[in-house]
Design a protein around this nucleic acid. Structure first.
Lengths: 334, 334
DNA sequence: ATGCGCAATGCAACCGGTTGCAACGAATCT
DNA sequence: AGATTCGTTGCAACCGGTTGCATTGCGCAT
């Protein structure tokens, strides 16, 4: 069906090498030759087979984009940014949905079968073993939204979730809340663990503050709502740091349904600053995570790693900031 | 880096054909041979290069998944369902983001370079020329969420948007509204056009009903909010059919901010039934579109088309239904 | 014992490209 | 004019597999 190199060569009356060379830049081809070949090629509608050429060049320009976050709306933006950013650099995202996987083996094998040039793991909930499994298989890997470490074993780009936890705690304390709660996502996610650690360490510097904590089953509206309903049954704290926006919105829904008001009765602080957070029927005060920066930095790092062969593992951390909206008491005037 | 067929053959002391055959099912290999090869393969950690084999077999198991809907939350679910469904059948989605493209040429060329076995166009806003361009390039294509036609030129799976428009109109009329409005998405999208046509045709059967219409700039919260603010400045209708949930939620926000109440002052009917529609701080009455069924049917159709070679173009239409929530007057008792 | 069918195996060509190497011709240098 | 250089081109081998065909060896019927 498709037109091949050979047919173009025959039509142009030149060797196959000549055709190949006109389509690989940096090769030595004369102008007349180039014109002959291009004429034949366009007449036949030829375009080179990327997969065949990958056999000899060793590069496919395929990048595995693996994630398990297909229920958190912020990841639609993440996928948008990744796909566009990769495309703009001539790379092709091969999307892998790891939603139910616990072992990295299958996906590692699959991506190796397709000879991907690199892998981007875009997830805050996958264990770090996944990224390492790719590295061990000799595939360049960037873990976006992964766990920050001061001795990274693979490239990591994201925020320092411990610092985010501290920021959350500091924010609640500043606002004058004396009974605060950490309502985290699933306890197995490193992002949850780190936010918890940071939150608690900051609170422990304020001995007069009462603190409690609990974990929702997953990062979802329903899980957040359910967990908050449970918390409201006993005596709730004055304000909670919800593990994530979608969880926090679920919590808001629970508060509203219980006849309480936010922030007057219970305050909520989210994390991510996803689009819905600013919808005025939600209006969630939240910690902003700089998604576009994280994604574009991840792509740059991937591109650089592909160019350099192997590159020393690196962690890139972006800072977060509080976005003032309506679910937390205002800060006292300075 | 990677282990090749040849190395396995040498280690097992057999021919390369033998190794190849043990990894392609249906080939004739004796048990002892198979065991020898498998032993050598597992010792070396061999797995076959899918791209190399595609050269001779002509199948890559790569499916282009092209879309331009990276801002509508329902598409996260769509991507989730597509990636899982394709993976489960051994197919690999190559994601293409067409957000800013107007011409199909580039993507057609790119996907042909990667020899995709088929293309799924998942979009309600791409002109149907995109799907046709793939067909014309000889690539099997399924257009999901595309425009239904009784003489389809490519496979189409989705809802009948005209019927959805009629259903919306019928619903508003049933509820006793006498001044109704159609607040559509971008006028260039076939989904908008068809919903408009259906809505108007149904209303025209009720000469006592006042009808107005307008179009938002895009399918987004902000566009919906802006358009509704504009509508509320003049004398608004009693109820609107919003072109889509996210648009409708924007409209709700405008209504709320204008000090009006929904549904008492202005009613809103959405379309899609996306997750946020049931969040109780939104609670949008909407027309449900059966996404999982559309996706899985699209995948089945793609698989069947791949198996059959060429298959007569087919349209698969799913029905919609109203989901009762809080933004429309209740129906009168029958 | 002979002949036959059949499953198992290897050889070699092929898929659609790339690339090292040698050959060639023209331009430059001495 | 002869030697040297350099850019351009084709040949042929190779990338990692698959597959048609011929060969081999075996079991079985006669």
């Amino acid at each position: 069906m498709a037109v091949t190199l050979k047919e173009v060569a025959e039509r142009a009356g030149v060797s196959r090498s000549a055709v190949s060379r006109t389509f690989t830049d940096g090769a030595s081809v004369s102008d007349v030759m180039r014109r002959k070949v291009e004429k034949a090629a366009s007449e036949l509608g030829y375009s080179p087979n990327a997969l065949a050429s990958s056999l000899t060049t060793g590069r496919t320009k395929l990048i595995g984009l693996v994630s398990n976050n297909f229920h958190n709306p912020i990841f639609l933006e993440v996928f948008d940014l990744f796909t566009r950013g990769l495309q703009d650099r001539g790379l092709r995202p091969l999307l892998v949905n790891l939603s139910d996987e616990v072992e990295p083996e299958n996906s590692v094998r699959m991506l190796r079968q397709y000879s991907v040039d690199g892998v981007v793991v875009a997830s805050s909930t996958l264990p770090s073993g996944f990224a390492k499994a790719f590295r061990d298989a000799g595939v360049p890997v960037v873990h976006s939204f992964g766990r920050y470490s001061s001795a990274p074993e693979v490239h990591v780009v994201g925020i320092d979730n411990r610092e985010a936890g501290r920021l959350a705690a500091r924010t609640l304390v500043e606002r004058g809340y004396t009974q605060v709660g950490f309502m985290g996502g699933p306890e197995t996610a490193t992002s949850t663990q780190d936010r918890y650690t940071g939150f608690m360490s900051e609170i422990s510097a304020h001995p007069n503050i009462d603190v409690s904590y609990s974990f929702a089953k997953e990062y979802s509206f329903d899980a957040g709502r359910e967990e908050m309903l449970r918390l409201l049954k006993n005596r709730p704290a004055q304000a909670y740091f919800g593990g994530d926006d979608v969880l926090s919105i679920g919590a808001l829904s629970a508060i509203k349904d219980s006849g309480l008001r936010c922030p007057d009765d219970v305050g909520i602080l989210g994390l991510n600053d996803m689009e819905m957070a600013r919808w005025n029927n939600i209006n969630l005060t939240t910690i902003h995570q700089p998604i576009p920066q994280i994604v574009s930095s991840s792509i740059e790092l991937m591109v650089a790693t592909l160019a350099e062969g192997d590159r020393y593992p690196e962690a890139r951390i972006f800072s977060c900031s509080v976005v003032e909206r309506g679910t937390l008491r205002p800060a006292p005037k300075a």
